[in-house]
Structures are given as C-alpha cells and as structure tokens.
Amino acid sequence: MKLLFLRLEGVMQSWGEHSKWDERDSALMPTKSGVVGLLACALGYPRGDMRINELSHKLNMAARADRAGNIMIDFHTVQGMPMLNSEGKKRSGNTITSHRQYLQDASFLVVLSGAEDILENCAAALESPVCPPFLGRKSCPPSLPMIADLNDRYASVEEALEQYPRADRSHGRLMTQREDPAGMAVRMDCLVSSAERRFARRNIIIGNVNPPEVNNS
C-alpha cells in the first residue's frame, strides 16, 4: 500500500476549525482542509478550483502529534475605511480587534492514502511547488521540507502510524487521529466547497502509539 508521509513542522502553525469572524482558533492537530489547502498551493490550484474539492474527496488523512506544541494567542488590530460587518454594513468604528491562536514548536506526521497517481502528483508538487505552501496560515512557513516520504513499506495506515520513526529522540506515547467512517469522534474539517468555504463532518478514530526513535546516525 503506497502512502505519502508529510512532516509538518515549524516555529508556528495554525489549523483553524471553529473560527468565527474576529476570533481565530487553532485545532491541536492539523485539519484535513488545511492539508488539502497546502497541497493545492503546491499544485497551483487557485481558490475555488473544483480540483481542490476532488482532492479532498479522493484523499484519506491520518495524523500523529510527534510534538504537540503549545498554544499561543496573538492580539491583532485591523484598520480600514470603512470597516464593514458580516451584513456588509458600516461598523461604528474603523478598527477591528482579533485574537488568533497558533501552535508553537509543534511537529506532526501526516499520512495520506489514496490513488497512487494522486499521491505521486502531490509528492512531485511538494518537491517543486507552484506556490509556497504554509502551515495553516501564510504567516506560518514550514521549517523543514514538507515531504518526508512516499513508499509502500507499510501494509496499512495504522501500521504506518505505529512504526514510522518519530520526529526526534522523544519518549512516550503519541496521539493519533485516523480518518475512518466507523470512527466515533468527529471533526468539521472535510472540505465541501473551497469557493464557498463550506465544510462537512469527518469521522475519525483517536488513538495513541509508541513509534520507534528517529535514527540520526
């Protein structure tokens, strides 16, 4: 079974899942919509392109938190003339305040499964991206090349999460999330329409694994 492994590591990451207007959250694990978005950047698909929706539908995603990171909240002010509200009407003031969450110093392993030609196209795009991909927001560039591996060494996604070496010489069990229709947990991060920014439920199975230590020798 061929799988595409991505290493998502950076000084800051942000994976919004429940953001509403001025308050911008970050989930503790990468969202599928965010990962599909960074692949779309690498492939050169513009926002609203139907190929982004197809990519989301044809890929299954699992993730492992090799370093969970720490939540940081950043306070922003945005000014403009005039400032409009959600109904398109003028606000009473010309300044918006916004709280935005980021994950600091996190490292995630993302495992993508799907048709082999799609995985190969994504891997090639990440090696030579059309547009620079980022970790959830444009202000969050990766600190390492995102593509870790494309191989068929593992019989299943579950086996890959358990056996793929961890990011560093840490110890202990690591949290995983694996997309599965039978999963009892739900995330609202499955892209339905990139043009309208609509998302659907994605069932996942949450677990934990103790993968082998990375070999730096």
Rank of each mutant, 00 (worst) to 15 (best):
H171N: 10
P141L: 13
R201G: 04
D168H: 12
V192T: 11
I204M: 13
V192Q: 12
P145G: 14
G136S: 11
G136E: 01
E159L: 02
L191M: 15
P141E: 11
R201C: 11
A185R: 10
I204W: 06
N151W: 07
P212L: 12
S143P: 06
Q163Y: 04
S139Q: 11
A160N: 06
M184C: 06
A160V: 07
D168T: 13
P181Q: 07
N151C: 15
A148Q: 06
C190G: 04
G172V: 08
D189S: 02
V186S: 09
H171F: 09
S170M: 10
D189T: 04
Q177F: 06
M184I: 04
A155L: 13
M175C: 08
R173K: 13
P142A: 15
R187E: 07
N151L: 06
P181L: 07
K138Q: 14
P181G: 09
S156T: 15
D180H: 10
Q163N: 15
Y164A: 04
T176I: 14
A195D: 12
S194Q: 02
I204L: 14
H171D: 11
Q163D: 09
V192R: 13
R153D: 10
D180P: 08
R178P: 02
D180K: 01
M175D: 04
V186W: 00
R169T: 12
Y164T: 05
P181T: 06
P142F: 05
A160P: 05
L144F: 11
F199H: 10
R153W: 04
R173N: 12
P165W: 00
R198V: 12
V192Y: 01
Y164N: 00
R173T: 14
P142S: 15
M184T: 11
L191G: 02
D149G: 06
M184F: 05
I206N: 13
S143L: 11
K138F: 07
L174H: 03
V186P: 09
P141G: 12
R201T: 11
R153V: 04
Y154K: 07
D189F: 07
S170G: 15
D152W: 01
R201V: 10
Q177W: 02
N210A: 14
D168C: 15
R198Q: 13
P142W: 03
G207I: 01
E159Q: 15
R137A: 12
R187C: 07
L161M: 12
A160F: 05
M188W: 07
I205K: 10
L191H: 00
D149T: 09
P141C: 12
L150C: 02
D149E: 14
S193L: 04
E158P: 00
G136T: 08
F199V: 02
P142L: 06
R197E: 14
M146Y: 02
V157H: 03
L161E: 00
I204A: 00
A160M: 09
M146T: 08
P142D: 01
Q177V: 13
S194L: 08
D168Y: 12
D152H: 05
P212C: 13
S193V: 09
D189Q: 02
P165G: 10
V209A: 03
Y164M: 06
P165V: 10
V209W: 00
A200L: 03
I147M: 15
D152G: 15
R187S: 06
R169Q: 13
D180F: 05
L144D: 09
G183K: 07
G172W: 08
S194V: 07
S156C: 08
I147T: 04
L144G: 05
A148F: 08
Y154Q: 04
E179T: 01
N151V: 06
N203W: 04
